[in-house]
């Protein structure tokens, strides 16, 4: 059995592009025979449990969400910065009592609020810990971890834990922790996937995120174009349809019906042409592109598996033997 090529997959995208769905599908795609994959969310939206129609993830539980048809298992974890801080204090300072005292004084909220960077370090720190479990073969280890990360507008800031801590502790365990996280994020173990729609704003944000991530040395592996409507028609056929050059003629249909179809398809063709232009814009980023087909039936568990198959076909997820 070949092992996953990357252990940590970070999925980001503009709001509304379906990044949570893609993160869940990617976790399923990685969870082949006997593998355990963890999918983490950090924004308190519980999007992943909503997607699978299961109860909320609370108190740092890592619960199995489903078994994949390929025989693996996907686990879910909702990372909360306050839980992460308390766990961190316990691990590094053995602060059982003081940890509780901190909470009583509102210090945990205070610390995570006054230092937004600290919040990010705590969140990525928990992901780091989950990845390390796999590397060190500790109990409850995972073969791969998928992070449903903050939106593209904030992704570089979120992952760049070094800068986040710039104004904070210059020495000590949190600094060391940040260094270790950064090493993991920059290593070959970690890749970022940017989810986009073929619309102007998400494409622009994807371009901006790629530029913002470049100096961090964190690797963007794939741009995932979501909700793409595939068509066998070429540009000329689409242009002619968009301009309603000649009316469509479905045999046996009245002129009125054909006119309505012509009008409706003109819009669709125009939109497809625009999408093709945006696809060209994305190719100039020189990154591998995966395309996920639009599912008119809406997104549910079955749709997630369909997307997962499309991801497996287009992204090389396993290391070469």
């Amino acid at each position: 059995m070949r092992s996953p090529r990357h252990t940590l997959h970070i999925v980001s995208g503009k709001g509304g592009t379906g990044k949570t769905t893609i993160a869940a599908a990617l976790a399923c795609a990685l969870a082949t025979s006997g593998r355990r994959v963890l999918v983490c969310e950090v924004e308190g939206r519980q999007g992943i449990t909503e997607l699978f129609g299961t109860s909320r993830l609370v108190d740092a539980e890592e619960r199995r969400l489903l078994r994949t048809p390929a025989g693996g298992a996907v686990f879910g974890l909702a990372i909360d910065p306050e839980d992460a801080l308390l766990e961190y204090l316990e691990t590094f300072y053995h602060l059982g009592l003081a940890g509780r005292a901190l909470d009583r004084f509102g210090a945990v909220d205070f610390a995570t609020s006054i230092a937004p960077g600290l919040r990010d370090v705590l969140l990525t720190g928990k992901v780091y810990e989950a990845v390390r479990r796999g590397i060190k073969q500790r109990p409850n280890s995972y073969d791969a971890v998928v992070l449903d990360a903050p939106p593209t507008g904030r992704i570089a800031q979120f992952l760049n834990v070094h800068t986040a801590l710039a104004g904070l502790a210059r020495v000590g365990p949190i600094r060391n922790q940040a260094d270790s996280i950064m090493r993991l994020l920059r290593s070959a173990t970690t890749v970022v996937h940017l989810v986009t729609l073929l619309e102007d704003m998400p494409v622009t944000e994807t371009e901006e995120a790629v530029a913002a991530l470049r100096p961090t040395q964190i690797k963007v592996a794939t741009v995932i174009e979501n909700m793409v409507v595939p068509t066998p028609l070429d540009d000329d056929q689409l242009r002619s349809a968009a301009s309603q050059e000649k009316p469509l003629g479905v045999p046996g249909w009245t002129e009125k019906l054909n006119a309505a179809l012509t009008l409706e398809f003109a819009d669709e063709a125009a939109r497809t042409l625009q999408q093709r232009e945006r696809h060209v814009r994305l190719t100039s980023l020189r990154l591998p592109i995966a395309q996920i087909a639009f599912d008119p039936a809406g997104i549910d568990e079955a749709a997630v598996f369909t997307i997962s198959d499309q991801l497996r076909d287009q992204i090389r997820l396993e290391a070469v033997a």
């Binding site: 204090l89 300072y93 005292a101 901190l102 210090a107 610390a111 502790a169 020495v171 000590g172 949190i174």
Partner: peptide, 13 residues
């Protein structure tokens, strides 16, 4: 509180 404050100082610097 002192315990808490000293832990805070350690974490935040």
């Amino acid at each position: 509180f002192n315990l808490a404050a000293s832990a805070m100082t350690k974490i935040l610097g």
